[in-house]
């Protein structure tokens, strides 16, 4: 029987072990520190300063946060962006992930032909640049030359068409659905991979017991992939609260109409980099970024303590 790894490392001279650790972990730690930890800490540090017109910076402690959350001029747009972000997230949870699960379930059906083709086609939008996605959907939904109006008219639903991207009531949900269209491939692939891991014997046994495809999926496969589904939910949460690019490319930094599509990302961008005549305010922008970080952190902690620990995993 080969010697186990822990024995090997235990017998190693300390210097050699340290060298080994440095060799394997060093690059990752260095890169992660340089590009993730350092910017994060620097951002938090910057958020405790304010700058004067001559360019000098002064330490102000938590004053930026008091302004951001306590002064209606800042807190109103902030909470508006936050609640829009929640809607954005809710649409992804209610539309993207169920569709992703359903597609994965269909793809994993035995005897399905052209599996590879479907998989590729459905994953394709994920690899497109957001700018291209924004531009294409802008054209598709355009009331002037979009195909959406014509397509609806062709099936007798022409009266349902509206300039969705321009209306306060529908712009945010429309953008969220465009984002769903783009990223639905990710939950699909992750869950599909998890479904493939389920042993054939389980499925066969169920079939022998007389279950059809749908009930097999509902009662056997779905409970077994729940850990992956919760992982997908957490990835969606993090990605949605960091989202920015689609809104910026379709609606610009002012996220109109009347800030109906403003999410934390665009709010941060305006604060940090400015917009037209609004000068960028790096210190206040850092405060916004820090609050965004804590929102995501709190969300992740809730998930870890309330969900992750209760999930049962099955080993095959």
């Amino acid at each position: 029987m080969p010697e186990s790894v822990s024995n090997i490392t235990a017998q190693m001279p300390r210097a050699k072990l340290a060298g080994l650790l440095l060799f394997f972990l060093g690059p990752a730690v260095a890169i992660y520190t340089l590009f993730s930890i350092y910017p994060l800490v620097a951002t938090m540090a910057l958020s405790t300063y304010t700058s004067d017109p001559s360019g000098g910076r002064h330490f102000v402690g938590l004053a930026n946060f008091e302004t951001l959350l306590g002064d209606a001029l800042w807190s109103k747009p902030f909470w508006n962006a936050f609640s829009n972000n929640l809607i954005f997230f809710a649409v992804h949870m209610c539309v993207q992930n169920p569709i992703g699960i359903a597609l994965a379930g269909l793809l994993s059906l035995p005897g399905l032909r052209l599996k590879g083709l479907y998989r590729t086609v459905m994953f394709l939008p994920t690899m497109l640049s957001v700018v291209i996605v924004g531009f294409s959907w802008n054209l598709i939904l355009s009331p002037l030359w979009g195909v959406a109006a014509g397509a609806l008219k062709a099936v007798g639903l022409g009266s349902l068409f509206a300039p969705w991207l321009g209306l306060e009531s529908s712009a945010l949900v429309t953008l969220a659905l465009i984002s769903v269209w783009q990223f639905v491939g990710i939950p699909m692939m992750l869950i599909y991979a998890a479904l493939l891991n389920i042993p054939e014997e389980l499925i066969d046994a169920a079939r022998v017991d007389g279950l059809g495809h749908f009930r097999i999926f509902l009662h056997i496969k779905l409970p077994l992939v729940l850990p992956t589904i919760s992982l997908v939910s957490v990835l969606t949460f993090v990605a949605n609260f960091n989202a920015f690019d689609l809104i910026y490319s379709v609606k610009g930094a002012l996220a109109g109409p009347n800030f109906a599509t403003d999410i934390l990302g665009t709010f941060f961008y305006r604060t940090f980099f400015g917009n037209q005549l609004q000068l960028g305010n790096p210190t206040m922008g850092s405060a916004v970024a820090t609050v965004m970080f804590f929102i995501i952190l709190v969300g992740l902690c809730l998930y870890l303590f309330l969900v992750q620990r209760r999930i049962r995993r099955y080993a095959f």
């Binding site: 802008n138 939904l141 355009s142 009331p143 002037l144 300039p163 969705w164 321009g166």
Partner: peptide
């Protein structure tokens, strides 16, 4: 204005 001007961009 054109129909659906609420969603008409500058490039449009």
């Amino acid at each position: 204005l054109g129909s659906g001007f609420q969603a008409q961009t500058y490039a449009d």
